[in-house]
């Protein structure tokens, strides 16, 4: 054993917590940098902003984490969210609060559709979800009839819960998102099927031989991703009070980036759902902070890309010998 490892083990750190700790460290470091640049960053109002912006990305990320843990990928979450947002607005006008249930049902259906295409038709998940992305984008257009209309005032009461917040800096949106995250974490960590999803990502052949239902695990993973995307869609609709069919398109990659920054390895089998909270927080803080400290618009994308690369570089555990990183 090299000297270093013994030094670390004396401090009762093992490599696993080091990685978990790391995303927390990077969140704190970057927040301090922004805070120094402009004290308003940690103001009560900005915390409210951050947590509000964080919620949709977190929902996409924790759904995506399930699929990434399989070793697959889901590129359709953004469009499922857009479609869900439009569907909610349209249905709220017609059937009132029941619309929320219908939209969640739609999320489950979209997830299962991806699951069937990948598991039973055995299409690689990259291409399967890329195709369903196009399908749900078209559905969003059709549902909204091409008109990006605002919600009519008469359905605002169903949606005003989105604006509520507790002692002025924790929005209700974030509380709901946190509860969903806890539920996702419990499912992934403490239920049998959740454990199987992990196992499939780590060694699918062994899981199959051990008598676990590999197909059901894959279907569940895509279901959770679809459901997460639908909840994100609900958050968009509630936050923007509108049915804009292109609202979620750009959030797909951010969801994946948040999951990866939370420690989920793209080769599958490693990482935790709960840590996507830190990944999503990191992304939101970077975007929000750059506005608060007034980084010029043209430079924002460059800095976002650079910080993304730096965080991925720190976050990947490079001592994984022999692991063939695709």
């Amino acid at each position: 054993m090299q000297k270093e490892n013994s030094m670390w083990s004396k401090l009762a750190f093992n490599r696993e917590t080091m990685i978990k700790l790391f995303s927390l460290v990077s969140v704190i470091v970057i927040s301090c940098v922004f805070c120094v640049m402009s004290p308003a960053f940690l103001s009560r109002r900005n915390l409210l902003n951050i947590l509000k912006d964080l919620s949709p990305v977190l929902m996409l990320a924790c759904g995506e984490a399930f699929v990434l843990m399989l070793g697959s990928i889901d590129l359709s979450t953004g469009c499922i969210a857009s479609c869900a947002a439009v569907m909610l607005t349209v249905l709220l006008g017609k059937i009132g609060p029941a619309a929320y249930l219908v939209v969640l049902g739609y999320g489950v259906f979209a997830g299962l559709f991806n699951g069937v295409a990948h598991t039973y038709l055995q299409i690689p998940s990259f291409i399967a979800t890329l195709s369903t992305q196009a399908i749900w984008q078209s559905c969003a257009y059709l549902l909204s009839g091409g008109q990006p209309l605002a919600m009519l005032p008469d359905i605002w009461p169903y949606v005003n819960w989105g604006k509520a917040s507790f002692f002025e800096c924790v929005p209700l949106l974030f509380v709901v998102a946190f509860l969903v995250l806890l539920a996702y974490t419990v499912i992934s960590k403490y239920t049998g099927i959740g454990k199987t999803v992990f196992a499939v990502g780590s060694n699918e052949r062994a899981t199959w031989l051990m008598g676990q239902n590999v197909r059901l695990a894959k279907m569940l993973a895509f279901l959770m991703s679809g459901l997460g995307a639908a909840i994100a869609g609900i958050f968009f609709a509630v936050k923007l009070k509108s049915r804009i069919p292109t609202v979620g398109v750009q959030y797909n990659m951010l969801g994946i980036a948040a999951a990866v920054l939370g420690g989920v390895q793209m080769t599958g089998g490693r990482g935790s759902v709960f840590m996507t909270l830190l990944g999503a927080l990191l992304i939101t803080i970077i975007q929000n902070g750059m506005n608060v400290i007034g980084v010029d618009g043209l430079w924002q994308q460059i800095i976002f890309g650079a910080l993304m690369l730096a965080a991925i570089f720190m976050n990947s555990d490079k001592d994984h010998k022999g692991l063939v990183v695709k």
């Binding site: 402009s38 308003a40 960053f41 103001s43 109002r45 900005n46 409210l48 902003n49 509000k52 912006d53 949709p56 968009f236 936050k239 923007l240 509108s242 804009i244 292109t246 609202v247 398109v249 750009q250 959030y251 975007q287 929000n288 902070g289 506005n291 608060v292 400290i293 007034g294 010029d296 618009g297 043209l298 924002q300």
Partner: peptide, 25 residues
């Protein structure tokens, strides 16, 4: 002047404006 481009992302437009308000009051 501070420019807030949102690259066609409606949610980002709202977030950027809220962030600036939080910072500049």
């Amino acid at each position: 002047v501070q420019m807030l481009p949102c690259e066609g992302n409606d949610d980002k437009q709202i977030n950027d404006i809220n962030a600036l308000i939080a910072s500049k009051g």
